[in-house]
Each structure stands twice: as structure tokens, then as C-alpha cells.
Amino acid sequence: MARILVTGSTDGIGLETARTLQGLGHDVVFHARSEERAAALGDKPEVLVADLADLGQTREMGRTAGAFDVVIHNAGIGGQDERRETGDGIERIFQVNVLAPYVLTALMPRPRRIVYLTSGLESVGVADLADLQYERKPWHGMQAYSDSKLHDVALAFAVARRWPEVYSNAVDPGWIRTKLGGPNATDNLPEGAETQVWLATGAGDALVTGRYFKRRQDLRPNAAARDVRYQDGLLAACAALSGVRLP
């Protein structure tokens, strides 16, 4: 039995992932952005509460969450019609989708396995280190989302390179019918959870690192994700914004 944290696990793919892992007999800790969402789970699972759009709460969660065998960074938000900043003065998509998993990775004890959820839209993401938060270029919500998903793949690969003892991988769950995916999405919830469950608990082919998967298939990511200069630049930018350095 493994102790596993799934962020953003009060609904959608995160909830499906957490429930599937529970059904397999693992000790699963859920994560909610508010006490109200935690209470809505209903059956009193162990839940960590932190709004990942708040740096203070994210850092506190990283420092106090404790040790896990597996961490699945599932939490994320989609494209926004207009550019919005959090209370920390950081563009919201970048803070929730990229900076939060970076901070948690840097502050929590190293697990044996880490999974970062991305999207097939990482293929059109742009590795623009000069303007990660769309402070100068025109706002485009879906492009900002796509960029964030490329950053997540680069983060997974950077962690794999720096921490060779940790299995760190990225997963595209597919276009899943959830609040984020919308009613026209092509795939069902169980499909959206399958690969990260396999990477979290499997043996053999699941014991790999620095890979990008969909439906357990090893795919070729956006070429930028493997650029070490981009990876290191992204880590440096996240460290400067958060005040937290990846060990």
C-alpha cells in the first residue's frame, strides 16, 4: 500500500484518480482549495486544504503536508477570457498550473514517484521565458493555458534530470468530459485517470522517468520541453516568483 497525494481531487479527473487509487487499497490523501469543497466530499477522507492561487497557502501546504510515496499534481485551471492576477500579483493560469506544482515539489519531502498532468495542447505551447505571465504580449487565454501545459512537461523533465532517484513523468489525460473539458469532450473519466494511476502504482514499464504519456503510450512532447536551458530558466523564474528554490 502506498501513501498518495492527489491535488485538485474534489471533482473531475482528480476525484476519479483518487477514488480509483482508494479502490486499489492505497492510502489516498485528497486536496481541496477550500473547506467547503473538502466538506462536499462527504465520506470524510483525509484532505489537505490550500488555495493554489495563493502563494502563502501553497507554501504552507508544501511545508506541512508530510511525506508521500507518490504525488500526482492534478490541480489546474483552463483558459480565461481575460488576463487575471491573483492576490500575489501573478497571472492566475501560470500561478495555479505551473508555480503551485513547482512550489509543492520544492518544499515537500521527495516522493518516490511524481506525476504532472499536462494536456495535448502542450504541443502548441510556447517556451517564452521572457514573458511567462503575458505582461507585454497580447492576452490569449487558450495560448496561455497551452503554454502552462508545456511548462508542466518541462517541470516534470527537469525534476527527472535533477532527482534521478525519483520517477518523474508527465501525463496527457485526454479530452475528458469534466467541468474543464466540457460536454463535447470525447473521453470518459476512467480513461482520464488510467495512466496516472498506472504510473503511481505500477511496476515494470511504469518505473520510468522523464517521459510523457497518454493512455500508457510514451509520446514525443513539444521539442522545447527537453531543452535544458529552458528547463533551468523556468525553474529560476519559479524560484524568483515564489521565493522557493528547488533543491
Rank of each mutant, 00 (worst) to 15 (best):
E35I: 15
A236F: 10
D43P: 05
R37P: 08
R84I: 02
T17M: 02
L241E: 12
G76E: 13
V244P: 10
I4R: 11
V159G: 08
L55F: 12
K149R: 08
P138I: 10
P190E: 03
W139H: 08
I4E: 06
E165Q: 03
D218W: 12
N169Y: 00
A65Y: 01
V244Q: 02
F68V: 13
A53L: 15
L189R: 04
V197F: 09
G89F: 14
A130G: 14
L41G: 00
D81A: 15
R216D: 02
G202D: 08
D147S: 03
M61T: 09
Q217E: 10
G56D: 10
T17N: 04
S34K: 04
Q231S: 03
Y167S: 05
A154W: 01
A225S: 15
A38C: 03
A106D: 02
T86I: 01
S242R: 12
D51T: 09
D187I: 00
D128V: 06
G42I: 14
V153D: 06
K137I: 06
G66D: 11
R92A: 10
R33E: 02
G62H: 09
E194K: 04
L107F: 06
Q57D: 09
T20G: 02
F94D: 14
L246Y: 08
V98P: 09
W163L: 05
D81V: 11
R110N: 07
N184D: 14
R110D: 09
G56S: 13
A239P: 07
A106Q: 01
D172K: 06
V6Q: 15
T7N: 09
A2L: 02
G78L: 15
L121K: 00
L48N: 06
S242T: 10
A67R: 15
P190N: 11
A236K: 14
Q143V: 10
R215T: 06
A239Y: 11
A203E: 10
Y134C: 13
H140V: 06
R19F: 02
V197I: 09
G14P: 03
K214A: 07
H140T: 08
F213G: 11
G79C: 11
D232Y: 04
L219A: 08
I72W: 09
T118F: 01
Y102M: 10
E191R: 03
R63S: 12
R84A: 06
I13R: 06
E35F: 10
K137N: 05
P183F: 02
R92F: 01
R229C: 10
A203L: 12
L150E: 01
Q231V: 11
R63T: 09
W163N: 05
Y230V: 00
V70T: 15
W175Y: 14
V228D: 11
L234M: 14
L24T: 01
R37G: 12
T64L: 00
D69W: 14
R84L: 05
D152V: 13
L155W: 03
A158F: 07
I72N: 12
D88N: 13
A203W: 01
A156Q: 03
H73T: 07
T10H: 09
D152L: 11
L199H: 11
F30H: 11
A2Q: 02
S123H: 13
E165C: 00
A203D: 07
I72L: 13
N169E: 00
G204D: 00
V70C: 12
V103D: 05
E35A: 15
L155D: 01
A203Q: 08
P138A: 08
P221L: 04
F94L: 14
E35V: 15
R162S: 06
R3H: 08
M1V: 04
T209G: 08
A65C: 01
A50P: 09
C238H: 06
